[in-house]
Protein backbone atom coordinates (compact mmCIF):
# COMPACT_ATOMS: atom_id res chain seq x y z
CA UNK A 1 0.00 0.00 0.00
CA UNK A 2 1.16 3.52 -0.78
CA UNK A 3 0.28 6.23 1.70
CA UNK A 4 -1.38 9.39 0.48
CA UNK A 5 0.36 12.47 1.83
CA UNK A 6 -1.96 14.95 0.17
CA UNK A 7 -5.06 14.90 -1.99
CA UNK A 8 -6.75 18.25 -2.41
CA UNK A 9 -8.67 20.01 -5.13
CA UNK A 10 -6.40 22.81 -6.22
CA UNK A 11 -8.77 24.27 -8.78
CA UNK A 12 -12.26 23.07 -9.65
CA UNK A 13 -12.13 19.43 -10.74
CA UNK A 14 -8.32 19.19 -10.66
CA UNK A 15 -6.65 17.46 -7.73
CA UNK A 16 -3.14 17.54 -6.41
CA UNK A 17 -2.16 14.04 -5.35
CA UNK A 18 1.01 13.35 -3.37
CA UNK A 19 1.86 9.75 -2.61
CA UNK A 20 4.65 8.11 -0.65
CA UNK A 21 6.45 5.85 -3.14
CA UNK A 22 10.20 6.01 -2.45
CA UNK A 23 11.27 3.62 -5.19
CA UNK A 24 9.38 5.66 -7.81
CA UNK A 25 10.63 8.98 -6.40
CA UNK A 26 14.18 7.70 -6.63
CA UNK A 27 14.02 6.99 -10.39
CA UNK A 28 11.41 9.32 -11.86
CA UNK A 29 12.27 11.71 -14.70
CA UNK A 30 10.32 14.50 -16.44
CA UNK A 31 7.71 13.07 -18.80
CA UNK A 32 7.27 9.77 -16.93
CA UNK A 33 3.93 8.52 -15.67
CA UNK A 34 2.75 6.15 -12.97
CA UNK A 35 -0.02 3.56 -12.91
CA UNK A 36 -2.39 3.94 -9.99
CA UNK A 37 -5.22 1.77 -8.72
CA UNK A 38 -7.56 3.60 -6.33
CA UNK A 39 -8.69 0.47 -4.46
CA UNK A 40 -8.78 -3.30 -4.78
CA UNK A 41 -11.70 -3.27 -7.18
CA UNK A 42 -10.19 -0.36 -9.08
CA UNK A 43 -8.86 0.08 -12.57
CA UNK A 44 -5.23 0.68 -13.37
CA UNK A 45 -5.01 4.26 -14.66
CA UNK A 46 -2.00 6.25 -15.85
CA UNK A 47 -1.18 9.64 -14.26
CA UNK A 48 1.58 11.94 -15.46
CA UNK A 49 4.12 12.85 -12.82
CA UNK A 50 4.12 16.57 -11.97
CA UNK A 51 6.78 16.71 -9.28
CA UNK A 52 8.65 14.58 -6.74
CA UNK A 53 10.89 14.73 -3.73
CA UNK A 54 13.43 11.94 -3.77
CA UNK A 55 14.60 12.58 -0.21
CA UNK A 56 11.07 12.50 1.21
CA UNK A 57 10.19 9.62 -1.13
CA UNK A 58 7.09 11.31 -2.49
CA UNK A 59 5.61 11.70 -5.96
CA UNK A 60 3.10 14.36 -7.02
CA UNK A 61 0.50 14.14 -9.78
CA UNK A 62 -2.32 16.38 -10.86
CA UNK A 63 -5.42 14.57 -12.03
CA UNK A 64 -8.73 15.66 -13.43
CA UNK A 65 -11.84 13.93 -12.22
CA UNK A 66 -13.41 12.40 -15.34
CA UNK A 67 -14.69 8.86 -14.90
CA UNK A 68 -15.34 6.41 -12.11
CA UNK A 69 -11.70 5.77 -11.21
CA UNK A 70 -10.67 9.39 -10.87
CA UNK A 71 -13.88 9.97 -8.89
CA UNK A 72 -12.66 7.30 -6.48
CA UNK A 73 -9.23 8.92 -6.27
CA UNK A 74 -10.87 12.26 -5.62
CA UNK A 75 -12.62 10.81 -2.56
CA UNK A 76 -9.39 9.59 -0.94
CA UNK A 77 -8.13 11.55 2.03
CA UNK A 78 -4.57 12.20 3.16
CA UNK A 79 -3.47 9.32 5.39
CA UNK A 80 -5.38 6.77 3.31
CA UNK A 81 -3.51 4.56 0.86
CA UNK A 82 -3.76 3.22 -2.66
CA UNK A 83 -2.95 -0.45 -3.39
CA UNK A 84 -1.02 0.19 -6.60
CA UNK A 85 1.38 2.96 -7.50
CA UNK A 86 3.79 1.61 -10.11
CA UNK A 87 6.39 3.52 -12.04
CA UNK A 88 8.08 5.53 -13.26
CA UNK A 89 6.84 4.35 -16.67
CA UNK A 90 7.33 5.50 -20.22
CA UNK A 91 10.37 7.10 -21.76
CA UNK A 92 11.42 10.37 -20.18
CA UNK A 93 11.01 13.59 -22.13
CA UNK A 94 14.13 14.30 -24.13
CA UNK A 95 16.02 17.11 -22.44
CA UNK A 96 18.81 18.75 -24.43
CA UNK A 97 20.33 22.11 -25.15
CA UNK A 98 17.79 23.02 -27.81
CA UNK A 99 17.99 26.80 -27.55
CA UNK A 100 14.55 28.28 -27.07
CA UNK A 101 11.83 25.90 -25.96
CA UNK A 102 8.14 26.63 -25.72
CA UNK A 103 6.48 24.57 -22.97
CA UNK A 104 2.70 24.46 -23.33
CA UNK A 105 0.58 23.27 -20.42
CA UNK A 106 -3.16 22.98 -19.93
CA UNK A 107 -5.40 21.14 -17.51
CA UNK A 108 -3.40 18.47 -15.61
CA UNK A 109 -0.53 19.26 -17.99
CA UNK A 110 0.14 22.55 -16.20
CA UNK A 111 1.45 20.22 -13.51
CA UNK A 112 3.34 17.73 -15.64
CA UNK A 113 4.98 20.39 -17.81
CA UNK A 114 6.60 21.78 -14.66
CA UNK A 115 9.44 19.24 -14.23
CA UNK A 116 10.05 19.42 -17.97
CA UNK A 117 10.42 23.22 -17.92
CA UNK A 118 12.65 22.90 -14.84
CA UNK A 119 14.94 20.37 -16.48
CA UNK A 120 15.10 22.37 -19.73
CA UNK A 121 16.02 25.47 -17.79
CA UNK A 122 18.74 23.56 -15.91
CA UNK A 123 20.05 22.35 -19.27
CA UNK A 124 20.56 25.98 -20.30
CA UNK A 125 17.60 26.55 -22.58
CA UNK A 126 15.57 29.71 -22.85
CA UNK A 127 12.23 28.47 -21.55
CA UNK A 128 8.98 30.13 -22.52
CA UNK A 129 6.02 28.62 -20.74
CA UNK A 130 2.51 29.10 -22.01
CA UNK A 131 -0.44 28.08 -19.87
CA UNK A 132 -3.91 27.83 -21.24
CA UNK A 133 -7.17 27.58 -19.30
CA UNK A 134 -10.82 28.34 -19.75
CA UNK A 135 -10.68 30.96 -17.05
CA UNK A 136 -8.23 32.39 -14.50
CA UNK A 137 -9.72 30.33 -11.67
CA UNK A 138 -8.50 27.16 -13.41
CA UNK A 139 -4.84 28.17 -13.32
CA UNK A 140 -2.44 26.84 -10.69
CA UNK A 141 1.32 26.56 -10.04
CA UNK A 142 1.95 29.86 -11.84
CA UNK A 143 4.65 30.79 -9.31
CA UNK A 144 6.39 27.44 -9.60
CA UNK A 145 6.38 27.71 -13.37
CA UNK A 146 7.44 31.33 -13.43
CA UNK A 147 10.47 30.41 -11.34
CA UNK A 148 11.76 27.98 -13.96
CA UNK A 149 10.78 29.97 -17.06
CA UNK A 150 12.33 32.95 -18.76
CA UNK A 151 8.88 34.06 -19.75
CA UNK A 152 5.43 32.96 -18.65
CA UNK A 153 2.53 33.58 -21.03
CA UNK A 154 -1.04 33.01 -19.95
CA UNK A 155 -4.03 32.61 -22.20
CA UNK A 156 -7.57 32.31 -20.91
CA UNK A 157 -10.66 31.66 -22.97
CA UNK A 158 -12.63 34.38 -21.16
CA UNK A 159 -9.75 36.84 -20.86
CA UNK A 160 -9.88 36.94 -17.05
CA UNK A 161 -6.10 36.61 -17.03
CA UNK A 162 -3.43 37.15 -19.66
CA UNK A 163 -4.36 37.15 -23.30
CA UNK A 164 -7.94 36.34 -24.24
CA UNK A 165 -8.52 33.42 -26.55
CA UNK A 166 -7.05 30.00 -26.85
CA UNK A 167 -4.14 27.97 -28.03
CA UNK A 168 -4.53 29.25 -31.59
CA UNK A 169 -2.95 32.51 -30.46
CA UNK A 170 0.44 30.85 -29.89
CA UNK A 171 2.18 32.16 -33.05
CA UNK A 172 1.03 35.71 -32.49
CA UNK A 173 1.90 35.71 -28.76
CA UNK A 174 5.36 34.31 -29.47
CA UNK A 175 5.97 36.82 -32.17
CA UNK A 176 5.03 39.54 -29.72
CA UNK A 177 7.59 38.08 -27.30
CA UNK A 178 10.11 38.13 -30.12
CA UNK A 179 10.81 34.42 -29.91
CA UNK A 180 10.98 31.55 -32.38
CA UNK A 181 11.07 28.22 -30.56
CA UNK A 182 13.49 25.50 -31.55
CA UNK A 183 11.14 23.04 -29.97
CA UNK A 184 7.62 22.97 -28.56
CA UNK A 185 6.62 20.53 -25.81
CA UNK A 186 2.95 20.12 -24.94
CA UNK A 187 1.32 18.46 -21.92
CA UNK A 188 -2.40 18.56 -21.46
CA UNK A 189 -5.74 17.28 -22.70
CA UNK A 190 -5.90 15.53 -26.04
CA UNK A 191 -7.58 18.39 -27.81
CA UNK A 192 -4.87 20.81 -26.72
CA UNK A 193 -2.13 18.43 -27.83
CA UNK A 194 -3.72 18.04 -31.22
CA UNK A 195 -4.55 21.70 -31.71
CA UNK A 196 -1.04 22.83 -30.80
CA UNK A 197 0.45 20.34 -33.22
CA UNK A 198 -1.87 21.58 -35.96
CA UNK A 199 -0.85 25.18 -35.35
CA UNK A 200 2.89 24.56 -35.25
CA UNK A 201 2.98 22.26 -38.27
CA UNK A 202 2.81 24.96 -40.98
CA UNK A 203 5.38 26.96 -38.99
CA UNK A 204 7.79 24.03 -39.01
CA UNK A 205 8.25 24.12 -35.22
CA UNK A 206 9.16 20.66 -33.97
CA UNK A 207 6.44 19.74 -31.51
CA UNK A 208 6.60 17.00 -28.90
CA UNK A 209 3.29 15.94 -27.39
CA UNK A 210 2.93 13.87 -24.22
CA UNK A 211 0.17 11.41 -25.13
CA UNK A 212 -2.46 10.19 -22.71
CA UNK A 213 -4.23 7.10 -24.05
CA UNK A 214 -6.10 4.47 -22.08
CA UNK A 215 -3.68 1.99 -20.49
CA UNK A 216 -3.83 -1.11 -18.33
CA UNK A 217 -0.42 -2.49 -17.42
CA UNK A 218 1.73 0.39 -18.73
CA UNK A 219 4.63 -1.96 -19.54
CA UNK A 220 3.88 -2.90 -23.15
CA UNK A 221 1.91 -6.04 -22.35
CA UNK A 222 -1.66 -5.16 -23.32
CA UNK A 223 -1.31 -2.79 -26.26
CA UNK A 224 -4.47 -0.82 -25.53
CA UNK A 225 -2.41 2.40 -25.69
CA UNK A 226 -1.42 1.87 -29.32
CA UNK A 227 -1.52 4.74 -31.77
CA UNK A 228 -0.27 5.47 -35.28
CA UNK A 229 2.84 7.60 -35.53
CA UNK A 230 4.17 8.30 -39.02
CA UNK A 231 1.98 5.43 -40.19
CA UNK A 232 3.51 2.92 -37.77
CA UNK A 233 1.87 1.28 -34.77
CA UNK A 234 3.45 2.46 -31.51
CA UNK A 235 2.67 1.69 -27.88
CA UNK A 236 2.50 4.94 -25.90
CA UNK A 237 3.57 3.21 -22.67
CA UNK A 238 6.93 1.93 -23.90
CA UNK A 239 7.63 3.80 -27.16
CA UNK A 240 6.30 7.07 -25.70
CA UNK A 241 4.39 8.77 -24.19
CA UNK A 242 6.23 11.58 -26.01
CA UNK A 243 5.86 11.60 -29.80
CA UNK A 244 6.27 14.07 -32.62
CA UNK A 245 2.87 15.75 -32.76
CA UNK A 246 3.08 16.24 -36.51
CA UNK A 247 3.26 12.49 -37.11
CA UNK A 248 0.25 11.36 -35.08
CA UNK A 249 -3.02 10.14 -36.57
CA UNK A 250 -5.21 12.33 -34.37
CA UNK A 251 -8.63 11.17 -35.59
CA UNK A 252 -7.75 7.62 -34.72
CA UNK A 253 -6.31 8.65 -31.38
CA UNK A 254 -9.39 10.65 -30.40
CA UNK A 255 -11.65 7.75 -31.33
CA UNK A 256 -9.58 5.33 -29.24
CA UNK A 257 -9.68 7.65 -26.22
CA UNK A 258 -13.46 7.38 -26.28
CA UNK A 259 -13.63 3.57 -26.41
CA UNK A 260 -15.01 3.19 -22.92
CA UNK A 261 -16.93 6.45 -22.57
CA UNK A 262 -20.28 4.64 -22.63
CA UNK A 263 -19.18 2.50 -19.66
CA UNK A 264 -17.07 4.95 -17.71
CA UNK A 265 -17.91 8.58 -18.26
CA UNK A 266 -21.49 8.70 -19.41
CA UNK A 267 -23.02 7.08 -16.30
CA UNK A 268 -21.44 9.78 -14.16
CA UNK A 269 -22.74 12.58 -16.33
CA UNK A 270 -26.32 11.51 -15.98
CA UNK A 271 -28.33 13.00 -13.20
CA UNK A 272 -31.78 12.08 -12.11
CA UNK A 273 -33.10 15.18 -13.81
CA UNK A 274 -34.34 14.10 -17.23
CA UNK A 275 -33.47 17.31 -18.97
CA UNK A 276 -29.81 16.71 -18.15
CA UNK A 277 -27.56 14.62 -20.34
Amino acid sequence: MYRIIERRMIVPNLHEFIVEAPAVAESVKPGNFVIVRPDDAGERIPLSVADWDASAGTVTSIFMQVGGSTAKLARLKPGAAVPTFAGPLGKETEIGAFGTVLCVGGCYGIGSIYPIARALKEAGNTVITLLEARSSYLLYWEDKLAAVSDKLIIVTRDGTKGAKGHIDRIPELLQRAGAVPDRVIVNGCTFQLMRTAEITKPLGWKTIVNMNPIMIDGTGMCGVCRLSVAGKMKFACVDGPDFDGHEIDWDEFLARRKTYNPEEVDPLRRSSCRSHF
Partner: peptide, 22 residues
Protein backbone atom coordinates in the same frame (compact mmCIF):
# COMPACT_ATOMS: atom_id res chain seq x y z
CA UNK B 1 6.67 -12.71 -23.59
CA UNK B 2 4.52 -9.73 -22.83
CA UNK B 3 4.56 -7.88 -26.13
CA UNK B 4 1.49 -8.59 -28.26
CA UNK B 5 1.89 -8.97 -31.98
CA UNK B 6 -0.48 -7.52 -34.54
CA UNK B 7 -0.79 -8.55 -38.19
CA UNK B 8 0.16 -5.20 -39.68
CA UNK B 9 -3.00 -5.05 -41.75
CA UNK B 10 -5.15 -1.92 -42.20
CA UNK B 11 -7.60 -1.03 -39.45
CA UNK B 12 -5.95 -2.68 -36.46
CA UNK B 13 -6.25 0.46 -34.38
CA UNK B 14 -10.01 0.66 -34.81
CA UNK B 15 -12.10 0.63 -31.67
CA UNK B 16 -13.31 -2.87 -30.97
CA UNK B 17 -9.97 -4.42 -31.92
CA UNK B 18 -8.09 -5.87 -28.95
CA UNK B 19 -4.88 -7.71 -28.40
CA UNK B 20 -5.62 -11.00 -26.64
CA UNK B 21 -3.51 -9.72 -23.75
CA UNK B 22 -5.74 -6.69 -23.33
Amino acid sequence: AGLPWFMEIPGENLNGVFSANE
